[in-house]
Nucleic acid binder design. Structure first.
Length: 226
DNA sequence: TCTAATCTCATCACGTTCTACGTGATGAGCGCATTAGA
């Protein structure tokens, strides 16, 4: 038996599909951890060597450049080399910078899409859970009603059996004629429909009705169901 | 088939706005990335 928290965890994509969430690859003891450490060492080594160049390395694009690149990205997700060179020339950037901008833009666009998709799936999942709750509540109510009806039916059947002097089946008991139905209505102060419902749920009584029909005793009782 | 160019991915580092976030830049690729051209 899982706790609610464990059930919740199972619903998380990172738990269900760990291969889709490579962050976990950097867990202690994994190859990802070693790779990460190696990269950090290299980067520190590189940045220690050229302190003055560090600031020059990171060149923030101005608004115009960023807007132009954004427009280009909307038109085409990937750039052919000539177009890249042209863009770089127009914006006064290195082609490498333009290439890098597009690489970063693609990566961030992709992760945004994944995030949006996740939100949609999450919302859909939540609504299904709510709907399921409603259905379960409805089922519970119906079961209760069924139990009540069954109980009432058995009471009625018992009382009818006593009043009619015994007999186990409708065809051989007090319910063998249409007048017995009227008696039932009187005795239990039921409306016709209610009395009929008590029998209608009984498969045996359906057979009994068929029997009545066959013998031409089709009165108000049968009319209610036809 | 080889190789240079390019890609994706994970990550770092810096600048900007409130200690997190956006973004430019870097390096690896391990069943050794893929792709296109010589």
């Amino acid at each position: 038996m899982m706790s609610p928290m464990e059930e919740e965890m199972l619903l998380l994509p990172s738990f269900a599909f760990p291969e889709c969430f490579p962050d976990d690859a950097a867990a202690p003891g994994s190859g990802g951890e070693q790779k990460k450490a190696g990269r950090q060492r290299q980067r520190r080594k590189a940045s220690a060597g050229d302190g003055d160049d560090a600031a020059a390395k990171k060149r923030k694009l101005n608004d115009e450049q960023a807007q132009f690149l954004e427009m280009s990205f909307r038109k085409e997700r990937k750039l052919e080399t000539p177009r890249k060179v042209q863009l770089a020339a127009e914006l006064g950037l290195d082609t490498k910078q333009v290439a890098m901008w597009f690489q970063n833009r693609r990566a961030r666009y992709k992760s945004k899409l994944i995030e949006e998709e996740f939100s949609k799936l999450r919302a859909a999942h939540d609504s299904v859970v709510v709907h399921n709750c409603h259905l379960e509540a409805e089922l519970h109510k119906l079961k209760e009603r069924l139990a009540e009806t069954e109980e009432e039916k058995s009471k009625i059947m018992a009382a009818a059996a006593t009043a009619g002097g015994g007999g186990s089946s409708p065809s051989s008991s007090s319910f063998s004629t249409v007048t017995d139905h009227a008696a039932m209505v009187d005795q239990f102060e039921m409306g016709d429909a209610e009395a009929n419902f008590a029998y209608m749920s009984d498969y045996t009584y359906n057979n009994y009705l068929m029997d009545l029909a066959a013998r031409g005793y089709l009165g108000c009782v049968y009319d209610q169901f036809s």
